[in-house]
Structures are given as structure tokens and as C-alpha cells.
Nucleic acid binder design. Structure first.
Lengths: 142, 142
DNA sequence: GTCACTGCAAAATCTTTGCACCCAT
DNA sequence: ATGGGTGCAAAGATTTTGCAGTGAC
């Protein structure tokens, strides 16, 4: 089963119809991987499917988010970012407030942090989109 | 020295002119305390100083942020939030992704998390505006 | 055939910017 | 008197929404 077919099956499993728009959007997200903004997906996906409207991207991303297929997170700038949720690789994000680079954080570390926070507060971190802000090694040297 | 005078002195120390607009904006922030959006400050401060423009709030907040007097952080919705930086009480934020409530996190906990992250990555968390997303106790019960 | 989905256009937010005037220093 | 700060208006960017038509099921 190809990557596209797998995603289509995933869509149907969640009760979504598999439209050309959604196929292209999902393939774009899967192909680019990592961390994307709506604008980035729009720029790339419209080349593969001219006429694709940006409102469709927003609605698709929102739907996929509700279905648990993508995770959303905020960056220091104003755009909302998101990525495919891969059950095999849950992770978090370290975002550099200087260069805005996004670094992935291992599950083990997230769980460690989650346990500490849970033990000292009544708060339960979401391991699937834990996002921390700070300064990366590269920017700290400068 | 009153609260207003202290903030005015703080402004001058950073090389800012003390205008009526800035005085009102700072007093509003200090009075409301905690976590505010630009729109919230605008709504309240314009009542005290009619004619106050929202662009002034944005410019003031940006200036104060550069001077280290206020911290900015992102929430799940689109508005940027900020608060006065109080050197006597550095802390972080736990934001509930369901009710959007903002809970303060103690410095000790932040430092603990910061050490762990630093030891396992090359990333240095900013203790003055560490923000974590998750689900608060109240929402988890429902 | 249904109705979820899409494109389009318009609007709603949030934020930034150019410019002329004003006032804190 | 200087130039940093402000108001105003306009633009920019991101995101949402109403509506009519279309295509996946």
C-alpha cells in the first residue's frame, strides 16, 4: 500500500471523504514532513492541484486536527504550525526564539518532563505537542 | 514611591520617554496583573485616556519587550499575550488547551525542567517565559 | 440521491507601517 | 530645538464564514 493509499485509508477510517484536495494536502504534508504552516502547504499543494483554495487547507487541517491526525502548535511568529501525527514517533518541539528553528525533542525527555510537572502541579502535559521556547546552541554562541 | 512612579523610573532607566500613554498602559498592565492581550489593555486603557490608539499599545509593548520589562508568549488562540516581568517573581505558564486558562508555574519547577532539557539537548530554556500546553485538572475530570 | 466538501468572495482579526504633528527631554 | 513618540489611516497577514455548486459515497 502506497503512502497516499495509507493516508486515504486513514481518512476514511475517521469518517472523512477522500477528495483530490485532501489527497494532495496530505501528500504534501507527508512529503515535506516535519513542521509546516498553512501558507507553506498552500504554496506547494496548489502547484499540484491548481485552483486549490487556501480556505480548504484551513478547513482540512482543522478537521485532521480534530480527528487526531495532525498536531498544531504556535511559534513565536504569528503563523500556526502543524505536522502529521505519527503514532510511532511521538515527540515535542524546541523552538529557538532567536532563529525560530524548530528542533524535535525525544519522547523520553517529554515523558520525564511530564512526570515532573504532573507531580508538582495538577497539570497534564500533552506529549504529542509539547512545545518549549528558548535559545538553541547555535544562537547562544553568537 | 508609588507604583506609577516606580514604573516611570524604570522607563527612564531604559532610555524611554515617559508619556501619558505609556504611563496609562503600564498602570493598566500593573493593575490588571497577570496575562493580557493587546486588545485587553487597549479596551481598559482607552477608558482612562480616550484617544489612545491601539497602534501605540503594540509599539509600547514591543519596546518594553525589547527592554526586558515585559515577556511575550503565545497561546492556543491567535492573540499574543504578555505580562510585566517581575524580577522578584520569575515564573512560567501552563496553558490549558481546552479552557485556555493560564496557570502560573513556580520558578523551582522551571529550573528543574530547564536543567533536564539542557542536560539532554543543547537547548537553553528561557526561564522568564517558559510556556507549557496541556490539560488542567478541572478539564481532565470532564 | 445525499450531504460532506469545495471554491469564491467577503469579512473578521490581529498586527504593522508611513507620515505629519506633538511633546518629553 | 531635537527627535522620540503618537494618532490616524491604510495596508498586510492570517484565519474564518456564508453561500451556491459539485462530487464522493
Amino acid at each position: 500500500m502506497s503512502c497516499g493509499e495509507r493516508l486515504a485509508a486513514e481518512l476514511r477510517k475517521h469518517g472523512f471523504r477522500v477528495t483530490p484536495q485532501r489527497a494532495v494536502i496530505l501528500e504534501t504534508i507527508a512529503h515535506r514532513g516535519g513542521h509546516l504552516t498553512v501558507q507553506e502547504v498552500y504554496a506547494e499543494a496548489r502547484q499540484r492541484l491548481p485552483g486549490l483554495n487556501i480556505a480548504t487547507i484551513y478547513r482540512t487541517v482543522e478537521s485532521l486536527h480534530h480527528a487526531g491526525m495532525v498536531d498544531l502548535f504556535s511559534t513565536t511568529s504569528h503563523a500556526t504550525m502543524f505536522e502529521l501525527r505519527d503514532p510511532a514517533n511521538p515527540h515535542g518541539h524546541l523552538i529557538c526564539t532567536i532563529c525560530e528553528r524548530v528542533i524535535e525533542m525525544e519522547l523520553g525527555l517529554i515523558q520525564e518532563l511530564g512526570h515532573i510537572v504532573a507531580s508538582e502541579t495538577e497539570f497534564e502535559l500533552d506529549a504529542h505537542h509539547l512545545t518549549l521556547f528558548g535559545v538553541c546552541a547555535r544562537c547562544r554562541e553568537q
